[in-house]
């Protein structure tokens, strides 16, 4: 084995100070040395979320084509203003009266929107995809200062559990909407159309996403110190934990399914498509 010290390469000029190039650290100029396509995941995430934001904004403000008996768009349910279309047996809850002149979707969408905005998965998704904080692991972020979720407004992420409670109520109402979808367009029970299947798939995914929530996991049992004293809650915690492992998948699947359910109603309500009756 050789014992002589080798000739070392001439040092690079010192990198600019700050972050990963802070004084005292290895003097490497590059902000990252990753050679894989690290940008693909945040770019795809940002594109997916942006597509949903554009679609849902259009549909929420459209205030039209959201009801085609027996289907009501999940974006407009429950309908809390007087200016909603009458939906027989459906989610008309005129709490705000006649003064509300905008689309009724805006009132109710605040809750699922808040639930998803403060969701632990979506936080990761948009912090990486939109805010580049960080864009990917070991890829330096462009911001000079970082205070995370210690200050306003991001400290408000801590109210996630309250949006979870609201999301459970919304999911209950969407479940009732799915039950109502077992009618035909004349409101007779015992029928099914293609839309019923779309609604069924949507509500299963909505519930799976809602119940896989990290706050739900904490509430049902995670906050306990002694599982052995609470066997039922331990069991529930285990089940929610199983779902929670798929939280990211369920977040995307339910986001797509809710948009698909709304789009299906739009197609039927606007006359572009007739709901095929199964029986």
């Amino acid at each position: 084995m050789a014992t002589e010290a080798t000739e070392r390469p001439a040092p690079d000029s010192p990198p600019p100070a700050g972050g990963v190039t802070a004084p005292g650290r290895a003097a490497i100029r590059e902000r990252h040395l990753r050679t894989d396509r690290w940008w693909l995941a945040p770019a795809a995430t940002a594109a997916g979320l942006l597509a949903f934001v554009i679609y849902s904004t259009w549909r929420a403000f459209a205030n039209t084509d959201y009801y085609a008996a027996p289907y009501v768009s999940p974006f407009y349910s429950p309908c809390l203003a007087e200016n909603c279309e009458p939906m027989k047996g459906g989610p008309n809850f005129d709490l705000l009266g006649g003064w509300w002149g905008l689309s009724p979707a805006i009132i109710i969408l605040i809750f699922p929107l808040g639930f998803r905005l403060t969701c632990y998965y979506y936080r990761k998704a948009y912090y990486r995809g939109f805010w580049a904080s960080p864009p990917a692991c070991a890829v330096a972020e462009p911001h000079k200062k970082y205070s995370g979720e210690t200050r306003f407004p991001l400290v408000l992420q801590n109210i996630h559990r309250y949006f979870f409670y609201a999301a459970v109520l919304v999911a209950l109402i969407l479940t009732w909407d799915t039950v109502l979808a077992f009618r035909n367009s004349d409101y007779e029970w015992g029928h099914m159309g293609l839309g019923t299947l779309v609604f069924l798939a949507n509500i299963v995914l909505i519930w799976a996403y809602t119940l896989s929530c990290h706050s739900c996991r904490h509430i049902v049992g995670g906050r306990l110190k002694h599982f052995s004293k609470h066997p039922v809650r331990y069991k529930l915690w285990g089940w929610v934990g199983k779902l929670n492992e798929r939280h990211m998948f369920l977040a995307w699947a339910s986001l797509i399914s809710v948009a698909a359910a709304d789009f299906y109603v739009y197609l039927v309500a606007s006359g572009a498509f007739d709901d095929p009756t199964l029986f």
Partner: peptide
């Protein structure tokens, strides 16, 4: 509170 749960 500094953790923004980006999972790296």
């Amino acid at each position: 509170g500094y953790c923004n749960i980006t999972k790296c």
